[in-house]
Nucleic acid binder design. Structure first.
Lengths: 202, 202, 202, 202
DNA sequence: TATGAATGAGCATTCATTCAT
DNA sequence: GATGAATGAATGCTCATTCAT
């Protein structure tokens, strides 16, 4: 149906997005290897050959999906600020994180799968580190500002907490009363970053 | 070479264990679908046909592996106690958890893969819940005893923290200075379960 | 951009020639089956659909290419002469043959491929025989005039020699010092057609 | 049916030979690319998967076929002799060549196809040169002994003649009255290697 | 005339599983 | 218990060809 180069381009973009959306969902649900090209084309309502008009291989498709999703995810964080996070900004940060996860559940499911099985996409871990570095740096500075004597360790603890919560959110979204739980995680974060009393002996 | 029924049985058991060990490692490293029966038999030094003498299918093999690993893992926890955990016991608990993970890295890698992609083994999540229920119950009681006004929520927070840390341990064992990090996680746990001060407004 | 029917016709002709030239080169280099329509259109700078505006199928394209090349090749031989070849004309004949091959290397590479693998183009061999018949007849007469008692056999020998040399020229043009080798072949031809002495007993 | 390692090995060898024979015939007739694995398995009466129990790929199959055929072909030539060919031996040589070609027509058809289209099997030409080198060296010495002042050039002429004749034999076996033609080629060879009279001016 | 998105049959290859020995 | 040849369905991918524009 399209004709002009512009319409054509627009058409291609939409079609590609359709394919990527379908593929992401299937990859997330069933795994990369267990999802066949046929399944994708069937669900997307296109022919098998057409996939290769848009992607050079199944692997390439996965890479474009993760790249796009990462960009989509991180463009929401405003990281151009020069100062250090205020408490309010930190709170926003955590909340924003959960909101993004909740709106891209399929991607985050795929994210964990790829993290855990690095063989599937060689570059995935590096890509993630590169993208998340600026964010982690902001948190690091925030922890320093808040008086942490071991910001690296505290960052690790905080990351574990949030990553673990996201994992639960992704794996068992139904048993996760999201509003309340986010508040709990947020409170836990603040409790962890406040100046510590004497820790228990172990 | 074995002859008596008893020796025969012993022989079968050892062979089966060999196959399961090899398969677990390969499943963990490469993923269930990406690991072929051929790879397993090659690494185990057996013929392809023999696999089906011990397992009815590849899927069945996976199920036996996870079942066995779960039993292996949880038999280490002494859960027959009737009372409620002391602080020392709780500490032991957490430390024991990390020790077990570190000694069964392959299984825990597979654990996350199966958690995240339920299509691979339908029953996995239920099996896990059933097995971990008694443990979570103990922690629940411990939180109550420690004065928690929301033991369910606090349990979730604690689980997130520990699960998140284990994920890091499994995914990036090299960048995880395990001794120190376990202490940090332990401290964080105690900080989270001590009676809360006024939380920050958000 | 062309408008008048005549310009249009001219345009079509040029475009068709472009496609055929590109296709011939690719067919020769990579083989008919291994060369895709996409490769041809890419190299010719046209769209995929356009090919079918000029040819009804890939097979048809091949046939038009070989037909055209044959005509091109044989129109250079002046075969309207009524008499029999002189020695000078025979020499010119052989030299002309090598010149033509050297100027149409791609076609002659394809020629051998189609000769050897008749499945690719059913009609190729017949077409060749039909085209080369008048030439062979001239040589036949020339051999008779030169006193051959077995012109058919001698024609076969001569053809083998020349065809074999052309094969070398086409397959390994670099190791073929063409000037010298053509002289050698020419001398060999004359030696073969001169009245034979007593052949060796075998 | 087989059981002992020896029977098994024998069984494998026969099966492999069966596949290679069928494949050689189809490759020769239709070309490498135009012959599908399905065609081969259908004609060989085996399942598609079994091919890959014997060959790692279609390409590998081709390579094993050419390697085996070369060895088969050249083991017939007794090249261990230290002296130089006698006339009788040279005659035997040429006759043997034609006999071998006639008994392995499919291979020689494939031979020309691979020669002409080097893209199909990269190593083919080198393999051929390596195998035929000792033979060509013997002819070279024979030409020298016979008084050739340009043995290299004469070798080329002789090769062209024989190669050309073989090409005809392979491409059009029906129109080639083999007995007579071999004699003609043999006579032509001797005529070409006898001390030349004054060549014609050109 | 010219485009290129779309098709679907066909390809080489893989792999869990079977079974005669 | 153990072997490995054999199967065939399914996979990712290619490509000549069509057709709406």
């Amino acid at each position: 149906m399209p004709r002009s180069p512009k319409q054509l381009e627009e058409h291609r973009k939409q079609k590609k997005k359709l394919i990527m959306d379908v593929a992401l969902e299937l990859f997330a649900k069933g795994g990369f290897h267990a999802t066949s090209i046929s399944q994708i084309t069937r669900k997307a309502g296109i022919s098998k050959g057409l996939i290769y008009n848009y992607f050079s291989s199944k692997q390439d498709m996965l890479e474009e999906i993760t790249e796009t999703a990462y960009n989509e995810v991180y463009k929401n964080f405003d990281l151009d600020k020069d100062g250090v996070l205020t408490n309010e900004e930190f709170i926003f940060f955590i909340k924003e994180t959960f909101r993004i996860v909740r709106e891209n559940m399929s991607f985050w499911q795929l994210y964990f799968a790829l993290m855990v099985q690095p063989g599937i996409q060689e570059s995935f871990s590096e890509k993630y580190q590169e993208k998340s570095k600026p964010i982690l740096n902001q948190i690091y500075a925030f922890l320093q500002k808040n008086g942490s004597t071991d910001p690296e360790g505290d960052l690790f603890v905080l990351s574990s907490l949030v990553e673990g919560a996201i994992l639960y959110l992704v794996v068992a979204p139904d048993i996760f009363p999201s509003g309340k739980m986010e508040d709990k995680i947020l409170q836990a974060c603040f409790r962890l970053i406040s100046t510590p009393e004497a820790p228990p002996k172990n």
